Computed example of a mutant assay.
Amino acid sequence: MSFLVTIAPAQLSFTVKPDETILDAALRNGIDFPNRCRQGVCTSCVCKLKSGEVRYSEPQPLTELDKQQQFTYCCLAYPCTDLVLHHPFIQS
């Protein structure tokens, strides 16, 4: 089962395969998605979760503040549902 991810405000949509991170799926779909370290350290791929649910492999990369602010580390996140994410620097 794949999930649909939409990036606002660009309104770009793509599907994520099972066991594929959001970042890997975006790059596979030709989206110019900011990324560097792919380890959840540099924060260039961080989006704000507007709707939906994601999961992470252990150890959980999010701090309590990250969770409160609805941050999603796309290099480490796997969708559990369709998602709407916000990233101000991704353009269509």
Rank of each mutant, 00 (worst) to 15 (best):
L12S: 01
K17F: 05
T6K: 00
S44F: 14
P61D: 01
C45L: 01
G40A: 13
V84C: 04
S92N: 15
D19T: 07
G30K: 03
V46D: 04
V46L: 02
T81Y: 02
C47M: 03
I31N: 11
H86I: 01
C74R: 06
K50C: 09
I90F: 04
T21V: 08
N29M: 12
F33W: 11
Y78T: 06
I22S: 05
N35Y: 15
P61T: 09
L76N: 04
G40T: 05
Q11S: 14
I22D: 05
L83M: 05
T63A: 11
T43S: 13
L65M: 11
S57W: 13
R55H: 13
L76G: 00
K17S: 15
I90K: 08
A25H: 02
H86Q: 12
N35P: 03
E53P: 04
T15L: 10
I90N: 02
T21L: 09
T81A: 08
Y56N: 07
S13N: 09
T21E: 11
A8R: 13
C42L: 06
P88H: 00
E64I: 06
E58G: 08
L85C: 03
C45F: 12
T15D: 00
Y78E: 05
T81R: 10
K48P: 01
L76H: 00
S92W: 06
M1T: 03
I90Y: 07
Y78C: 00
A77V: 00
F33R: 02
L62Q: 07
A77K: 00
L23V: 05
T6L: 03
L23W: 01
I31F: 10
F89G: 09
D66Q: 12
T21N: 10
G30S: 03
V84G: 01
Q39L: 12
E53H: 11
P18V: 08
L65R: 13
C75E: 11
K50P: 00
L23N: 09
L65K: 15
F71M: 09
P34F: 03
K67C: 02
Q91M: 11
C42G: 05
L4G: 02
T43R: 13
G52V: 03
C80D: 09
K17D: 14
Y73W: 05
C45K: 09
L23M: 02
C42Y: 05
P61Y: 04
K50M: 14
T72P: 01
F33Y: 15
A25T: 12
A8Q: 14
M1L: 11
E53A: 13
L62G: 01
N35E: 09
P34R: 07
I31A: 14
L23S: 01
C75R: 01
T15H: 01
T72D: 02
R36V: 04
T43E: 15
T21G: 12
P9L: 06
T81F: 02
R36P: 05
F3G: 00
F71R: 12
L23E: 08
L27W: 03
G40V: 08
D66C: 13
Y73I: 15
D32Q: 14
T43L: 11
V84D: 07
P79Y: 01
L85N: 03
